[in-house]
């Protein structure tokens, strides 16, 4: 059955507002059906609002203040960064201890099996150092060369 309304939806909406609607008010004074419907509708909407508000108030999570949350985050980030730095340092130390980059002569057993290569490496190192020394010596201008030993010059002068 299709329900019959005495008041339009707009009039009913206006009646739900405190200001109301003049023609609708006039109809309402003479129509008990609309009076009952308006009362029912108003109560329903009030109940819905009150219950929703009450439920939301109960169900709402209790958050700590934002500032303290931000402080917690900042402190947490600091702790995390410190932990990360410590872990990295420990990892680096353990790598350097258990996996030495340069083998030490005399302690490495594998070095005994490859003596010729080691000797060659030492030889080439010496040659490299000599080369560097030579380059440095030639690049020094004569004015910056070490002074002659004074005793030698005095000897020559006395000889004259």
């Amino acid at each position: 059955m299709t329900p019959t309304f005495h008041l339009t939806d707009q009039q009913m909406y206006d009646l739900l507002q405190p200001a109301g609607n003049e023609p609708a008010h006039l109809h309402l004074q003479t129509c008990t059906d609309c009076q009952a419907e308006l009362t029912n509708l108003r109560e329903s909407l009030l109940n819905f609002r009150d219950a929703t508000t009450s439920l939301a108030a109960v169900a709402a999570p209790r958050y700590p203040p934002l500032a303290s949350r931000a402080a917690t985050w900042f402190f947490g980030a600091k702790v995390w960064a410190a932990s990360f730095a410590t872990a990295t340092a420990v990892l680096a130390i353990s790598i350097s201890v258990f996996h030495p980059i340069h083998s030490r002569p005399g302690t490495d057993t594998a070095a005994t099996t490859s003596i010729p290569q080691a000797a060659l490496a030492v030889e080439s190192d010496d040659a490299l150092l000599d080369g560097i020394q030579q380059d440095l010596s030639t690049s020094i201008p004569p004015s910056l060369e070490p002074l002659a030993v004074p005793t030698a010059s005095s000897e020559t002068s006395t000889q004259n």
């Binding site: 059955m1 329900p3 309304f5 939806d9 909406y13």
Partner: peptide
Amino acid sequence: HLYRSLATIRSQHAQSSS
């Protein structure tokens, strides 16, 4: 939208009453 939503609620109430 408000009038239409109210119409839906009125309709439900009317059906329930009948």
